[in-house]
Deep mutational scan, measured.
Amino acid sequence: YFQGQLNAMAHQIQEMFPQVPYHLVLQDLQLTRSVEITTDNILEGRI
């Protein structure tokens, strides 16, 4: 994955969860590489 793709995914998640800091979303995406998994992590309070 290149950074631009991760940034696009992070923006997509931020639209759904504007209360979660962008850098935390991006940090999780770098591990998961998945909008779905990061979204689940937010919903389950891991982020």
Rank of each mutant, 00 (worst) to 15 (best):
Y1H: 13
Y1V: 12
Y1I: 14
Y1N: 13
Y1A: 13
F2E: 14
F2M: 12
F2W: 15
F2R: 08
F2G: 12
F2Y: 12
F2K: 09
Q3A: 10
Q3T: 08
Q3R: 09
Q3Y: 07
Q3W: 08
Q3P: 13
G4I: 14
G4A: 10
G4N: 13
G4L: 14
G4R: 11
G4Q: 15
G4V: 12
Q5I: 11
Q5A: 11
Q5V: 12
Q5P: 10
Q5Y: 13
L6R: 02
L6P: 02
L6K: 03
L6H: 03
L6N: 02
L6G: 02
L6E: 04
N7C: 12
N7Y: 15
N7P: 10
N7I: 15
N7K: 14
N7Q: 15
N7T: 13
N7E: 15
A8V: 11
A8F: 12
A8T: 10
A8E: 13
A8S: 09
A8K: 10
A8I: 13
A8N: 10
A8G: 07
M9G: 03
M9F: 09
M9V: 07
M9A: 07
A10I: 08
A10H: 02
A10K: 02
A10G: 05
A10D: 00
A10S: 05
A10F: 05
A10R: 03
H11M: 14
H11I: 13
H11G: 08
H11K: 14
H11V: 11
H11T: 11
H11N: 10
Q12D: 07
Q12T: 09
Q12K: 13
Q12W: 10
Q12P: 00
I13K: 00
I13M: 05
I13D: 00
I13N: 00
I13C: 03
I13R: 00
Q14I: 14
Q14C: 10
Q14R: 11
Q14A: 12
Q14M: 15
Q14P: 00
E15N: 10
E15Y: 10
E15A: 14
E15F: 10
E15M: 15
E15L: 15
M16L: 12
M16E: 06
M16K: 13
M16N: 06
M16T: 07
F17Y: 08
F17R: 00
F17L: 02
F17V: 01
F17N: 02
P18C: 05
P18A: 04
P18Y: 03
P18W: 03
P18S: 04
P18D: 03
P18M: 04
Q19H: 15
Q19I: 06
Q19V: 06
Q19F: 13
V20W: 08
V20I: 14
V20H: 03
V20P: 02
V20K: 01
V20F: 09
V20C: 07
P21A: 08
P21M: 06
P21W: 06
Y22N: 04
Y22D: 01
Y22P: 06
Y22C: 04
Y22K: 06
Y22A: 06
Y22H: 07
Y22F: 14
Y22I: 11
H23Q: 09
H23M: 09
H23E: 12
H23V: 08
H23C: 09
H23W: 14
L24K: 07
L24A: 08
L24T: 07
L24M: 08
L24Y: 06
L24S: 06
L24Q: 06
L24E: 05
L24F: 06
L24I: 10
L24N: 05
V25Y: 02
V25I: 15
V25C: 04
V25S: 00
L26I: 11
L26H: 05
L26E: 04
L26R: 05
L26A: 03
L26D: 02
L26G: 00
L26M: 10
L26C: 05
Q27D: 08
Q27G: 07
Q27A: 14
Q27M: 12
D28S: 04
D28I: 04
D28K: 01
D28N: 06
D28R: 03
D28H: 03
D28L: 06
L29Q: 00
L29M: 03
L29Y: 00
L29I: 07
L29E: 01
L29F: 03
L29P: 01
L29V: 06
L29A: 01
Q30W: 14
Q30P: 00
Q30N: 09
Q30L: 14
Q30M: 15
Q30I: 14
L31G: 07
L31V: 14
L31I: 14
L31Q: 12
L31R: 13
L31F: 12
T32Q: 01
T32S: 06
T32W: 05
R33A: 09
R33S: 09
R33F: 14
R33T: 07
R33N: 14
R33P: 03
R33Y: 13
R33K: 14
S34H: 03
S34I: 03
S34R: 04
S34D: 08
S34W: 03
S34F: 03
V35R: 07
V35D: 03
V35T: 06
V35Q: 07
V35I: 09
V35H: 05
E36L: 10
E36P: 06
E36F: 08
E36Y: 09
E36I: 09
E36V: 10
I37P: 01
I37S: 08
I37E: 11
I37Q: 11
I37W: 09
I37T: 10
I37N: 06
I37G: 08
T38F: 02
T38K: 00
T38A: 00
T38M: 03
T38N: 00
T39E: 04
T39C: 12
T39I: 15
T39P: 00
T39F: 07
T39V: 15
T39Y: 07
T39K: 12
D40N: 15
D40A: 15
D40E: 14
D40S: 15
D40P: 01
D40T: 15
D40K: 15
D40M: 15
D40I: 15
D40G: 13
N41F: 02
N41K: 06
N41T: 02
N41M: 02
N41L: 02
N41W: 03
I42K: 00
I42R: 01
I42M: 04
I42V: 05
L43E: 06
L43I: 11
L43K: 13
E44K: 15
E44V: 08
E44I: 08
E44R: 14
E44Q: 15
E44D: 09
E44F: 11
G45R: 04
G45W: 05
G45H: 06
G45K: 06
G45L: 05
R46Y: 07
R46K: 12
R46P: 02
R46E: 03
R46G: 03
R46W: 07
R46T: 06
R46L: 08
I47G: 04
I47T: 04
I47L: 14
I47W: 06
I47H: 02
